[in-house]
């Protein structure tokens, strides 16, 4: 009788341990792309505010990287700053301060680029986020979404987002858009199709007063 009882307890314990399984990733990874082409550099202060908001929102264990979009964005060199916050809150705060300083320096010395390789930046972002192993992944594109790539660069191929949430922020209207608004709408639609066909989720946030909705499903 006792032996049966012990066996039953052991069996339950084994089942309980098996139920634990692989730990679930609960951290968040954010990759923010900042367009530095042409006149869009004038908008960079807005991007700085968004980064500060992200620094205030992200917590221990989360990852954040800020990269610029220039003529050839598919490179680590374009990453302005990146960090994975320490599990200790005091250390995480120190990292946030250092990150803020890096961004402040970047904002003061940013130069305009001739071309706008958004796709390259997005691919770089997907790679970075997959490396972090974050449970929730976000790519924030701070750009007018007007892609201009150098001759010879190949960017027109499908991308695999695998559940990454892609948000286009502050998509400004260009002069040509004012002439024919369909251009603007087509641009947005093209990016939506590209993201959603790659199993990603697409959103556009033009009103920066709704900045708090950026990571609204972070806690869920």
């Amino acid at each position: 009788m006792k032996a049966r009882l012990i066996l039953a307890v052991l069996f339950t314990a084994v089942l309980g341990l098996a139920g634990c399984g692989e730990p679930v990733a609960r951290n968040t990874g954010v990759y923010m792309l900042i367009d530095t082409s042409g006149t869009y550099t004038q908008e960079i202060e807005k991007a700085q505010k968004i980064i500060n908001y992200l620094l205030g929102t992200l917590t221990t264990g989360d990852s954040l990287a800020v990269a610029k979009i220039d003529s050839g964005s598919f490179t680590e060199k374009d990453i302005v700053a990146k960090v994975t916050f320490d599990s200790r809150p005091s250390q995480a705060n120190a990292q946030k301060r250092a990150f803020q300083t890096s961004i402040n320096q970047f904002v003061t010395r940013v130069n305009s680029s001739a071309y706008t390789d958004i796709t390259g930046g997005v691919i770089q972002g997907i790679e970075y986020l997959n490396e972090t192993g974050a449970g929730k992944k976000y790519i924030l594109i701070f750009s007018d979404l007007k892609e201009e790539i150098q001759k010879g660069q190949i960017r027109d191929f499908p991308l695999s987002f695998n559940g990454i949430r892609v948000s286009a922020i502050n998509v400004t209207k260009l002069r040509s858009d004012n002439v024919d608004p369909r251009e603007y709408l087509d641009r947005l639609e093209a990016w939506r199709n590209r993201v959603e066909s790659g199993s990603g989720k697409w959103r556009v946030i033009n009103d920066l007063n709704r900045i708090e909705t950026l990571l609204e499903d972070k806690g869920s």
Binding site: C20, G21, E22, V24, R26, T60, S87
Partner: peptide
């Protein structure tokens, strides 16, 4: 540490 959870 703040980022560690008990199992799943």
């Amino acid at each position: 540490g703040a980022g560690t959870y008990v199992g799943n």
